[in-house]
Simulated assay, not measured.
Amino acid sequence: MTQRIKLNEAGQEVLRTLYPINKYLANSSIEKQLLALVHFRVSQINGCAFCLDMHAKDLRVMGESEQRLYVLDAWQEAPFYSERERAALAWAEALTILKGPLVPDEIYEAARRQFSEKELLALTLGVIAINSYNRLNIAFGADVGSYQVGQFEQN
């Protein structure tokens, strides 16, 4: 494989530009576990191994069950996700897998029933952020498996 720019060296300045988004999200009313679940799902869609490892570890520490993590790829068929989680996951998928100029009305309406205007904006920002991290990791590679829970919390 071709030698890539290392995100843990030259890429740190670029990664740091995303940290204010993380700070904003940490102070939002979106539940930390819900946001991590969304980040895990988006990382599944994008195939980002580093982020999958990271968010799986974080979610397990938060008390997430193995069953819910294993079945997340088929959340629409599984009975153990709340309506709020379902709305967030559908919203995240619609923003990650772009199929048209607008998120479908039924997905938007379901999200608006579960999230305040400010929360939906924060959730959208969270989806944008994880898509950015995924793309950086996929473009340049990452040390998959090296993440330690809490490693990036000070950022």
Results as ranks from 00 to 15, higher is better:
Thr2Lys: 15
Gln3Thr: 14
Gln3Asp: 15
Arg4Gln: 08
Arg4Ile: 03
Lys6Val: 07
Leu7Lys: 14
Leu7Glu: 12
Asn8Leu: 09
Asn8Val: 08
Asn8Tyr: 08
Asn8Cys: 11
Glu9Trp: 07
Gln12Arg: 05
Gln12Asp: 01
Val14Trp: 14
Val14Leu: 15
Arg16Leu: 02
Arg16Phe: 00
Thr17Lys: 04
Leu18Ser: 00
Leu18Glu: 00
Tyr19Gln: 13
Tyr19Gly: 01
Pro20Gln: 04
Ile21Met: 14
Lys23Ile: 00
Lys23Arg: 06
Asn27Phe: 01
Glu31Cys: 12
Lys32Asn: 00
Lys32Thr: 00
Ala36Thr: 04
Ala36Tyr: 04
Leu37Phe: 07
Val38Met: 03
His39Asp: 02
Val42His: 00
Ser43Leu: 01
Ser43Phe: 02
Ser43Pro: 05
Gln44Leu: 06
Ile45Met: 12
Asn46Trp: 10
Gly47Lys: 07
Gly47Val: 10
Gly47Asn: 11
Cys48Lys: 05
Ala49Val: 01
Phe50Glu: 07
Leu52Val: 10
Asp53Phe: 12
Asp53Asn: 11
His55Asp: 07
Ala56Asp: 01
Ala56Cys: 05
Asp58Val: 10
Leu59Gln: 09
Gly63Pro: 02
Gly63Ile: 00
Arg68Gln: 07
Leu69Glu: 11
Leu72Lys: 07
Asp73Gln: 14
Ala74Asn: 13
Trp75Phe: 15
Trp75Arg: 03
Gln76Asp: 12
Gln76Val: 10
Ala78Arg: 09
Ala78Met: 06
Pro79Gln: 10
Phe80Tyr: 15
Phe80Ser: 07
Tyr81Ala: 13
Ser82Tyr: 14
Ser82Lys: 10
Glu83Lys: 09
Arg84Tyr: 13
Arg84Trp: 11
Arg86Leu: 12
Arg86Thr: 09
Leu89His: 03
Leu89Phe: 03
Trp91His: 11
Trp91Glu: 08
Ala92Gln: 05
Ala92Asn: 08
Glu93Leu: 01
Leu95Phe: 05
Leu95Asn: 11
Thr96Trp: 01
Ile97Thr: 06
Leu98Trp: 08
Lys99Ser: 08
Gly100Cys: 13
Gly100Tyr: 15
Pro101Asp: 15
Pro101Arg: 15
Leu102Thr: 14
Leu102Cys: 11
Val103His: 06
Ile107Gln: 04
Tyr108Pro: 01
Tyr108Ser: 10
Glu109Thr: 12
Ala110Val: 12
Gln114Val: 03
Phe115Pro: 00
Phe115Trp: 01
Glu119Gly: 04
Glu119Cys: 12
Leu120Asn: 02
Ala122Val: 05
Leu123Val: 02
Leu123Tyr: 06
Thr124Ile: 08
Leu125Met: 14
Val127Leu: 12
Ile128Asn: 07
Ala129Arg: 03
Ile130Val: 11
Ile130Cys: 01
Ile130Gly: 02
Asn131His: 11
Asn131Trp: 08
Asn131Ala: 15
Ser132Glu: 08
Asn134Asp: 09
Asn134Ile: 02
Asn134Met: 07
Arg135His: 02
Arg135Pro: 00
Asn137Glu: 10
Asn137Thr: 12
Ile138Arg: 05
Ala139Glu: 13
Ala139Tyr: 07
Phe140Leu: 15
Phe140Ala: 12
Ala142Leu: 13
Gly145Phe: 13
Gly145Lys: 13
Gly145Asn: 14
Ser146His: 09
Tyr147Gly: 05
Tyr147Ser: 06
Gly150Trp: 02
Gln151Arg: 10
Phe152Thr: 08
Phe152Val: 08
Phe152Ser: 03
Glu153Leu: 08
